[in-house]
Nucleic acid binder design. Structure first.
Lengths: 259, 259
DNA sequence: CAACAAAATTGATCTCAATCATTACCTTGG
DNA sequence: CCAAGGTAATGATTGAGATCAATTTTGTTG
C-alpha cells in the first residue's frame, strides 16, 4: 500500500498491543486513522465533561484518571498504564466521565470515535483486543470497588504499595513513587494526613524506606500479610479453621507443604 | 440455514440487545453456540474461583455480583440488569472473579469462551455491541469507585435509592426492594446497622416509606439534593460562588432561569 | 543565599460510622 | 398456641480516621 505514510516498525508498542497478526496492509490502513501524540508530565489529555470526540490507547507512560463530585471532592479512579484504553467509557455518552492527566511522558494513539467503529468492524483481531483490554480494566475496577468497600487504611496503603512493585521478584528494590500524599489519599479514599501517618508507621517498622519521589520496599512479605489478601486461617486446638474463600489457596499450600 | 433449531423471534431480548442488523442466517449460526438458561431467585449462577468456561449475557432479571476477601468480608460489586454481560472479567484469566446469584428469575444466554471468540471475530456487529456494553459497565464501575471513595453514609443510601427509581418520572411510586439491609450494606461499604439507621431517618423525615420488600419514594428531590450529585453553589453577598465541576450544569440552569 | 510557597509530618481533638448488645417483629413449623 | 430462627430497629459505647492546627521539610525564584 503505497499511500501509507508511516514506517511499519516505527510504532512498535502500538502494533504489538493492538494489532498482532494483522497483515501489514491492514495495519497501514488503520494507521492512517490513528493520530499519535505525546504528552508531557502534568499535561492534561482531556477534561471531565469535555465532548468525547477521541478515544485513546496508551502506548507508554502513566496517566492519572480523576473524577469529582459537584462540590469539589476528588477521586482518582485509576492509574492507567501502557496497553490500557482511555475514554471508552464515553462510547455511548457524549462526554468524558473523567479528567486524564499524564504523570510521566505519555505516548498515545488517538482515534476519532467514528473511525474506531470502522476499524473494529473491519478488523476482528482489533476488536478482540479491545474487548480483552476493557474486560481487564473492568476486573481491575471491580477489585478497586472491593478494596474501597472493605479495607482499612493500613490495608489500602499496603496493597497500593504492592501494586507499585514491578515484577514481584526481589525485595529491597528502589522504585519511583509518582504520586504525592494527597494523590495517594485521593486514590485510596483517605485523607492526606492518614496516608502520611500510615507511611510514617511503615517506615518506623522498617517495612519501607522513602526518599523524595522514590521508595524502597524492605519487607514485601509484611505488606502482603497486611493487605487484606492474606489467607484467613486460624488454628484452634487441633482444628484448622479457614474461610471458604481461602479453601483453594489452602489446598495448594497444603499440597506443597505435605509433599 | 436448515440446521437452525431455534425460531428466530423466540429470543427477542437476546436478539435485540446483541444482534441488531444481522442477517437471519448469521443469527442462526450464532444461535447454535448459545445456550439459554433460566435461574430462579437465590440460585447461584457461578462461584468466585470457579473455572470460567462460560460467559453470560443477561436477558432479563437481576443478578447480584459478590466478591470477598480471604477473611470473609463481602462486597457486592453491582446488581447486573438485562443487557449486561457477566463473566467477561475472566476473559484472560481462568477463574470467575465474583459469585453471581440471581435475585429475581433470570434469563441468560451463555456461551463457551472459545465460541465467543469465534462469534466476535466473524460478526463485527456483535463485537461492537460487546464493546459498548463493557464500556458502559466500566463507566458504572468507576462511578461506584467515586461513590465509595467520597460519599458519606447518607449520600450512599440516597444515591442507591435513586438508582432504584425506574424512569425518573413521577414520585410516590411504590417499587420492590430486592435487597436486605445486610445486602445494601454490602453494596455501599457500610454496616447493616448504619443502613438501618439512615433508612429509619429517611422514613421519619417522610422522604421514603417502606414496607416489607417494597419501598415508596415520597421526596425524590430531597434525595437528589443529598446524594452528593447536587450542585455546589453558595451565595455570599452579591457573589455567586460555584465549583468548576458545576459550571456547566449552572450555565444550563441559569439560561433557563433568566430566560 | 534569602525568601517564599508547597508538601509532608506530627499533634490534639472531634465525629461519623463501627461495634456490641438488646429488643421488637416477623415468618415457619410443630 | 408457642418455640425457633432470621431480619430489622434501636440504644450505648468505642474507635478509626477526619478535621483542625502547628511545625518541619522541601522545592522554587529572584
Amino acid at each position: 500500500m503505497s499511500s501509507c505514510d508511516c514506517e511499519l516498525n516505527a510504532c512498535v508498542l502500538c502494533e504489538a498491543r493492538l494489532y498482532p497478526g494483522l497483515s501489514s496492509e491492514l495495519v497501514c490502513r488503520i494507521r492512517n486513522l490513528l493520530i499519535r501524540e505525546t504528552y508531557s508530565p502534568h499535561q492534561t489529555m482531556f477534561w471531565e465533561g469535555d465532548t468525547a470526540d477521541f478515544l485513546f490507547a496508551l502506548k507508554a507512560g502513566q496517566v492519572k484518571l480523576t473524577t469529582s463530585l459537584p462540590d469539589g471532592r476528588q477521586q482518582i479512579l485509576r492509574l492507567a498504564i501502557a496497553g490500557q484504553l482511555l475514554g471508552f467509557e464515553s462510547l455511548s455518552g457524549r462526554k468524558y466521565s473523567y479528567t486524564a492527566e499524564a504523570l510521566t511522558e505519555a505516548h498515545v494513539c488517538k482515534i476519532n470515535r467514528r473511525d474506531l467503529f470502522e476499524v473494529i468492524q473491519q478488523n476482528p483481531a482489533v476488536s478482540v483486543r479491545v474487548i480483552e483490554a476493557l474486560s481487564q480494566e473492568l476486573e481491575q475496577a471491580e477489585m478497586t470497588i472491593r478494596d474501597l468497600g472493605l479495607k482499612s487504611s493500613t490495608e489500602r496503603v499496603a496493597s497500593f504499595l504492592l501494586s507499585l512493585m514491578p515484577g514481584c521478584d526481589g525485595p529491597k528494590k528502589t522504585m519511583s513513587l509518582l504520586l504525592s500524599r494527597r494523590e495517594m489519599a485521593e486514590m485510596l479514599g483517605l485523607t492526606e494526613e492518614t496516608v502520611s501517618r500510615v507511611m510514617a508507621d511503615f517506615a518506623r517498622r522498617e517495612i519501607i524506606e522513602n526518599g523524595k519521589g522514590c521508595l524502597r520496599i524492605l519487607n514485601p512479605g509484611w505488606l502482603r500479610a497486611h493487605s487484606g489478601i492474606a489467607n484467613g486461617l486460624a488454628i484452634v486446638g487441633s482444628w484448622i479453621i479457614l474461610h471458604a474463600a481461602t479453601l483453594d489457596a489452602f489446598r495448594i499450600w497444603a499440597t506443597d507443604f505435605f509433599a
